[in-house]
């Protein structure tokens, strides 16, 4: 099963979003795309070309974009508010909290350039706290897909789902390997069965988990690979089933350790199934400028870091 996890092309997850929103343009007349002066970065070109009347350019004014989106929902439109992840969350947190979350509006906040893999623009833009902020908002669905195909499917799925959603994706070209898998909001994906350890990953780091599992397989360590694209609501059943079998866990994500997927899983396991656990995540620091892969390595999110975490977790079993 592990060797089936391969890729023939690389694409940015934001390309998957661009493809998804374009499909929605064709199939769902209620879908409206908004952006704050970042149409090209969000891959909206095709949507704008074919559905100009359903595209809203708000200018560099993210707070206004969130408010307008909340208003658009009244009467049934489905606004997809798009910008970089930092400006889609931290910048407008109170606007989201009051006008969208608390008011339970059907707004889809779609955020690109999340995490370290944004690269050279540096720490001002590399948000590593967004999953934490967004998962704390009552009633919010939070999704962090792992490749372009999964992002495309997630984009289609959130249009069908009623309620506020945060969809997080990124800038770099990345292996596309999830074609065989279905996408359902709130349902994790068992990508590989293994008896020794559960590696649970989200976003770009899922591919690192796959590569780590391949390396570990050569050493006779069989990793169960679980992809959690929906950070909230968390697929507790899948996680508990896997961990009760493997009895140790590693989580991996491109996010601060505090507030990320690892934290959600730790809270689950502490309550229901205390288990030795290691977390691959950013350790309470900001990022910096650099190339995506360099940064992932420097901040402890490389394939070798996943391998090392697995060994630490196994030693504690």
């Amino acid at each position: 099963m592990l060797d089936k996890l391969t890729f023939t092309e690389k694409k940015a997850t934001r390309d998957g979003f661009g493809a998804g929103i374009y499909e929605l343009g064709k199939t769902n007349p209620n879908v409206i795309a908004l952006t704050a002066d970042l149409a090209a970065s969000l891959q909206l070109a095709n949507f704008i070309k074919d559905f100009p009347e359903r595209f809203i350019q708000v200018g560099i004014a993210e707070a206004n974009m969130i408010g307008i989106s909340a208003g658009l929902t009244i009467g049934g439109k489905i606004p997809f508010a798009t910008t970089f992840a930092n400006f889609a969350t931290g910048r407008v947190y109170d606007q989201i909290r009051q006008s969208v979350a608390y008011s339970h509006k059907n707004v889809k906040i779609c955020a690109s350039h999340a995490g370290l893999t944004l690269g050279e623009d540096g720490a001002t833009h590399q948000i590593l706290e967004d999953l934490g902020m967004m998962k704390m908002l009552p009633g919010f669905t939070v999704i962090n897909p792992c490749d372009a195909e999964q992002t495309r499917l997630a984009t289609l799925a959130i249009a069908e789902h009623y309620g506020p959603v945060y969809l997080r994706f990124g800038r770099p070209s990345w292996p596309v390997f999830t074609a065989p898998f279905q996408f359902q909001i709130g349902k994790g994906i068992l990508m590989n069965e293994g008896a020794d350890i559960s590696i649970i990953a989200t976003g770009h780091l899922m591919w690192h988990a796959v590569e780590a599992a391949k390396i570990l397989a050569t050493e006779g360590i069989n990793c169960e690979l679980i992809n959690i694209h929906t950070i909230k609501p968390l697929d507790e059943e899948l996680i508990l089933d896997s961990v009760s079998k493997t009895k140790c866990v590693v989580t991996a994500e491109e996010h601060q350790m505090l507030g990320g997927l690892g934290g959600s899983i730790a809270q689950l396991l502490a309550r229901k199934l205390p288990t030795p656990m290691e977390m691959v995540a950013v350790q309470d620091s900001f990022g910096e400028s650099g190339q995506p892969q360099e940064l992932l390595d420097k901040y402890g999110l490389g394939v070798k870091d996943v391998v090392a975490a697995v060994k630490r977790a196994l030693a504690r079993k």
Partner: peptide, 16 residues
């Protein structure tokens, strides 16, 4: 400029 481990961040910063 914009390289890893540099003080010249993509956007101006005091951090380094």
């Amino acid at each position: 400029f914009r390289k890893i481990n540099a003080r010249l961040q993509g956007h101006p910063a005091t951090h380094e």
